[in-house]
Amino acid sequence: MCDAVTDQTEVGEILSAPLIIEYPFKRTTGPIIGAFLTGLREQVLVGSKAEDGRVIVPPAEFDPVSGNDLTELVEVGPEGVITTWAWVTEPHAKHALDDPFAWILVKLDGADTPMLGALKAPTMDVVATGARVKPVWADEREGHIDDIAHWVLVEGDAA
């Protein structure tokens, strides 16, 4: 957000110190999210089929409308189209890409809802809603969302 300097406070000798909150959380996935992560490890993208027939990616464990259990997983992608995007000029150290990149919501082929990813692109000008993209898989995959290293535009479809 924007850091406007509108106030200058005389802090005096108020004590301050770094506080680091860090933990390697271990999350149990349950079968649906587990299957999604298994798929990432195997370079396969899956979504879950909702009661209204929509395919949701990442798979929802429960129907977003009725709340009922969802049980059917289907393969989607790996390519898809950008449904919206945002250009980051100054990536954060925690972001997957060091150079300016685009956040994208990408609707995979066969899916009805888009998922979030980071798109590697040389400039903002080549990114557009509707452009086709594909995942670039990490060399070492372990069943983690980071198994998708990032996304790239499909050649010849730079909007």
Binding site: M1, F25, R27, T29, I33, F36, L37, P58, A86, V88, H92, K94, H95, A96, W103, M115, L116, G117, A118, H144, I145, D146
Partner: peptide, 13 residues
């Protein structure tokens, strides 16, 4: 926390 959190997609983005 599993499918989105690790991407660190900040609120402004």
């Amino acid at each position: 926390p599993i499918t989105v959190g690790p991407l660190w997609a900040d609120s402004v983005s």
